[in-house]
Design a protein around this nucleic acid. Sequence first.
DNA 1: TCGGTGACCAGTAATCGTTCCTATTCGCGA
DNA 2: TCGCGAATAGGAACGATTACTGGTCACCGA
Lengths: 143, 143
Amino acid sequence: MGGTQERDIRERFRRSGYTLTSQRKAVLEALGESRGHPSAEDVYLLVKKKNPRVALGTVYQALSVLEEIGVIGAKHWSESPTRYDLNVDPHLDIRCLGCGEVSEIPGVDLGDLEDRLRGATPYEVTRAAVVVEGLCPACRAAG
Amino acid sequence: MGGTQERDIRERFRRSGYTLTSQRKAVLEALGESRGHPSAEDVYLLVKKKNPRVALGTVYQALSVLEEIGVIGAKHWSESPTRYDLNVDPHLDIRCLGCGEVSEIPGVDLGDLEDRLRGATPYEVTRAAVVVEGLCPACRAAG
DNA sequence: TCGGTGACCAGTAATCGTTCCTATTCGCGA
DNA sequence: TCGCGAATAGGAACGATTACTGGTCACCGA
C-alpha cells in the first residue's frame, strides 16, 4: 500500500544523487518511531537522543531532502509548525485546535480530487492538500 | 451569493461586540481594491497609502478580528505568508510555485467535503481548506 | 597511497512573519 | 463633561526556518 520500504528509499536516493547518510537515516527512524505527526523540533529531539551532536539545521535539511525525493510528506496548518509524515499517499489529517494533536481521518476518498483540479485550471497542478481543523473528543469534553 | 455587504458587516460587528473602526474599514477597503489574495504586508502597504500612521500590528489585529467574525477568509500555503480574501464561501485557490501569485479555481464543487469529513472522524470539524500548488501558465512557459 | 573534489555537517547568526507589550488616544454611555 | 474600556501606534520580542562558515568525510583517479 505505498509503504515506503527500505529498498525503495535507497533507490530514490540513488536516483536523486543525494546520499543516504546516517543523519538522514536517523531522521527517518525518528519519523517511524513517533506515532503522530512530529514537527521538525520533535524529530530533532528524538534524533538528538541517539546522537547528541546533530544540529537542528541538519534535521531541517534532511527533512527537506526526504520530502523532495518523495519519501516523506509535509503538511502545514496555521499557527503551528510544519508536520512531517511517513505516509505519502493522499490522505486526510486533522489538527485539534485545543491540544494541537494531529491524527488521520480514515475512509474519505480523495482519489479524483487532483484530477478534477487539473481539468479546472490552466495551472500545472503539482500538489493538493486538504487541511482540516477541529476539536478532538477530549478537548471537546474539556470545554 | 454570500457576498458580504456593508449592512451584513455592520451587523456582524454589532453582534460580536467589536467596533467597526476606521482602521478596520480601511483594511476591508484594501482587500476590496486588491484584486488578488493579498498578504498582511500587502494590506498594510495599501492602508498606509491613505493613512501613513497605521501600524502593521493594527492590520494584523484587524485581519484577525475580521476573520473571527466571518467577514474575510484566510489561507495558508507553505513557504508563504498568510493570504486574505473577501470571499468566505468555500472555494479553491491555487498558488504558483514560481511567481507566488494566488488565483481562484472555479467550477470545482467541494460542497459535501465538510459533511463527509464530519461522518468520518470523532473530531468536531470547524474548518476544512484545500490548498493547491502548481505552476501558472506564464511560469511554466518560462521554464 | 596520496591529493583533490564535492557533498555533508555542526554550530551559530540572520531572517521573516507574526504576536506581544506599553503608553496613548478614541469613542461611547453616564 | 467625565470616566472607562476598547483600539491603536510604535517598537520590542518571539518562534520557525534558512543562510552562512569553517571543518569533516567519502570517494575517485593518478
